[in-house]
Every structure is written in structure tokens, then in C-alpha cells.
């Protein structure tokens, strides 16, 4: 299974430097938490890894190649980004059928992931009727559609109810145990300590820490105090 490697990544938007010479590896078989305060460059990093944003310098590789060079990208990488949109008038199942057609995925997989995400009963409702949590579940179902070796998720727990969070945690743990590579960007630390093995902490676009969670402590309190120290402004 492929690792995700980020080498010397830099991205500027106008005068703002969103990511600054960032390097880290998210190893296969682990859940890597990409942590950082709001505006620390997490989402930009993930978007670069997915080929949606062009880096100013450096690169992000998935199994040694850039996303844009993957021949069947959705079979390798599943992604859920905060701004991934749905057409409000399209039914949930149809949203996934559109994707399945684009990615050459058999139609029965659509119903399979709808079931996995607990959306079987809502499959024929238009997305405009969905709550935030249901949209999130649909986004996760879409990310898993291609049975990918790599999952890249931006704030996946957003809006999920406690049952949804428990389901997400169990699913990610299982997928990592199968050897897949999972990256989860988040700023909700409480959930992170229960899900991730490996932590990458960024602040102001720069790397502050990368290593096993056990190196900074596996309790919420320990992670929180390490996080606050590492991401505090330098003065």
C-alpha cells in the first residue's frame, strides 16, 4: 500500500504563505492525524496532495507519484474535503452513480457504501433535505466508493452524531488494519487521541511535530498541552 510523502511543500496565495517548506510522511497501515489551528495550512496541503491546488514549490506524492499522474485515481485515493459539494436537487444515490460512472466502478458498490454509511433509507432523497451529518456520511460513502488504498479526509467528524463518530472511528481503524493509508485533518483533539497512531502538527504553514502519537502522550490532556505549546505564536 502506498505512503503519502510531502517534500518541501510551499504554497503562497498572493502575499499569504499558506504552507511553508512542509515535509512529512503518512505511512501505510496507520491513521495519521494532520493537526493544526484554523488557517494553519492543513486543507491547502490536502488539496495539493489531491492535485486541486498547484504548489509554489515542493511536491506531494502518493506511492511515489503525483495525484495527477495516477491512471485510475479514485481506485487509489478516496477523499472527502470540507467543500466537496453536492447538487442540492440530486438524490444521494444518484450522486454516487454519477461518480461510479466516472470512475468505472460497478453499480452494486453504490448501494454497498450507502449501507456502510448508514444512508440506505435516505438513498432516494435529494441532498437538499440532508442534515450536515447526513451530508458528511454521504461524503464518506463517496470517499470509500472506489475501495481506495489511501483515504484523505478533511474534518470528517464535523456534524456527525455520537453514533456516527463511533462508526467513523471503527471504520478508520479497520481500514488502517488492512494496511491502508489514512490521513485525517482535524482540530478536534479529543477524537484524535482515540483514532490516530501518527501525528503531524502544523502551525502557520510550518511543521511543528511529526511522529507517533505515543511520543507526545496518548491522553487528551497530554495531546492538548503539547498541541498548544507547539502551535503557540513564537513570541
Amino acid at each position: 500500500m502506498p505512503d503519502i510523502e510531502v517534500h518541501g511543500l510551499t504554497k503562497t496565495f498572493g502575499r499569504v504563505m499558506a504552507v511553508r517548506d512542509l515535509s512529512f510522511t503518512a505511512p501505510a497501515g496507520k491513521v495519521t492525524g494532520l493537526l493544526g489551528p484554523n488557517g494553519s495550512g492543513k486543507t491547502t496541503t490536502l488539496r495539493i496532495a489531491l492535485g486541486l491546488v498547484r504548489p509554489t514549490a515542493g511536491e506531494a506524492l502518493i506511492g511515489g507519484v503525483r495525484y495527477g499522474r495516477l491512471t485510475r485515481p479514485r481506485r487509489v485515493v478516496g477523499a472527502m474535503l470540507e467543500s466537496t459539494g453536492f447538487h442540492p436537487g440530486r438524490r444521494a444515490r444518484d450522486h454516487l452513480r454519477v461518480r461510479a460512472a466516472a470512475d468505472g466502478i460497478p453499480p452494486r458498490r453504490v448501494d454497498e457504501v450507502l449501507g456502510l454509511a448508514g444512508l440506505g433509507a435516505a438513498a432516494r432523497r435529494p441532498v437538499r433535505q440532508f442534515s450536515l451529518g447526513m451530508r458528511q456520511r454521504l461524503g464518506l460513502a463517496a470517499a470509500m466508493l472506489g475501495d481506495p488504498q489511501v483515504l484523505i479526509l478533511d474534518e470528517p467528524a464535523n456534524g456527525l452524531d455520537p453514533a456516527g463518530i463511533a462508526w467513523l472511528r471503527g471504520t478508520l481503524r479497520d481500514l488502517a488494519r488492512e494496511g491502508r493509508t489514512i490521513v485525517v485533518a482535524s482540530h478536534v483533539l479529543g477524537e484524535v487521541t482515540r483514532t490516530v497512531d501518527h501525528v503531524v502538527i502544523v502551525s502557520a504553514g510550518e511543521l511543528r511535530f511529526a511522529g507517533p502519537l505515543s511520543d507526545i502522550g496518548e491522553t487528551h490532556a497530554a495531546l492538548e498541552s503539547a498541541f498548544l505549546n507547539l502551535t503557540a505564536a513564537p513570541n
Binding site: G51, L52, L81, G85, R99, A102, D103, A142
Partner: peptide, 8 residues
């Protein structure tokens, strides 16, 4: 976003 992820 989805469209470009399927077809970079």
C-alpha cells in the same frame, strides 16, 4: 472538486 478528482 469531485469532477476533477475523478479526472485530474
Amino acid at each position: 472538486t469531485d469532477t476533477y478528482l475523478s479526472s485530474p
